[in-house]
Every structure is written in structure tokens, then in C-alpha cells.
Amino acid sequence: VTVHVDGVEYDFDNPEEALKFAKKVAEDKNGTYEVHGNQIRVT
């Protein structure tokens, strides 16, 4: 699973970890996250 944040890609073997990371980053920057299959984009 790849999490995209501001043009940087973070790869996770564990989808739950990826989702947790995306949620935290989105909260920290008052943004949102979208899941597209095995890609998660934080905006």
C-alpha cells in the first residue's frame, strides 16, 4: 500500500498501518485522505 503525501510516497506492507498513518497525517495538516485501491492520497 502506498500513501502519497505532498508528492512523497510512503510504502507500507500492512494496509492497517498505512491507513493509520494516512489518518494521522491528514489530521495533523487538517486535510483529508482518499483511498483508491492500494493507493491512499492525503490532501
Rank of each mutant, 00 (worst) to 15 (best):
V1C: 14
T2I: 11
T2Y: 06
T2L: 05
T2C: 12
T2M: 06
T2D: 01
V3Y: 00
V3K: 01
V3F: 01
V3M: 01
H4S: 12
H4R: 09
H4N: 11
H4D: 07
H4W: 15
H4Q: 09
V5L: 08
V5P: 01
V5Q: 01
V5M: 06
V5G: 01
V5W: 08
D6A: 08
D6R: 05
D6N: 14
G7M: 05
G7F: 05
G7R: 03
G7P: 00
G7N: 08
V8P: 00
E9K: 14
E9M: 14
E9D: 12
E9T: 14
Y10T: 03
Y10Q: 02
Y10D: 00
D11P: 15
F12M: 02
F12Y: 05
D13C: 14
D13F: 08
D13H: 08
D13L: 10
D13A: 13
D13N: 10
N14C: 10
N14G: 08
N14K: 06
N14V: 06
N14T: 13
N14H: 07
P15Y: 15
P15R: 13
P15E: 14
P15S: 12
E16N: 07
E16V: 08
E16R: 05
E17V: 06
E17T: 06
E17D: 14
A18M: 00
A18R: 01
A18S: 02
A18F: 01
L19Q: 04
L19H: 06
K20H: 11
K20W: 06
K20P: 00
K20A: 14
K20Q: 12
F21A: 03
F21E: 03
F21Y: 07
F21K: 03
A22L: 04
A22P: 02
A22W: 01
A22I: 03
K23I: 11
K23N: 06
K23T: 09
K23W: 04
K24T: 10
K24V: 08
K24N: 09
K24C: 13
V25M: 14
V25Y: 08
V25W: 09
V25H: 08
V25F: 07
A26W: 03
E27F: 12
E27R: 12
E27N: 12
E27V: 09
D28R: 10
D28F: 10
D28H: 10
D28S: 13
D28M: 13
K29G: 11
K29N: 14
K29H: 15
N30T: 04
N30G: 13
N30Q: 09
N30P: 02
N30I: 04
G31M: 12
G31A: 08
T32G: 10
T32M: 11
T32L: 09
T32P: 02
Y33C: 10
Y33E: 02
Y33R: 01
Y33A: 04
E34Q: 09
E34W: 07
E34N: 05
V35Q: 09
V35M: 08
V35I: 12
V35S: 05
H36N: 13
H36W: 09
H36A: 12
H36L: 14
G37S: 05
N38K: 08
N38D: 09
N38Y: 03
N38A: 07
Q39T: 13
Q39H: 13
Q39N: 11
Q39V: 15
I40F: 03
I40L: 04
I40N: 01
I40T: 01
I40Q: 01
R41N: 11
R41T: 14
R41Y: 15
V42W: 00
V42Y: 00
V42Q: 01
V42N: 01
V42E: 01
V42P: 01
T43K: 12
T43E: 10
T43V: 14
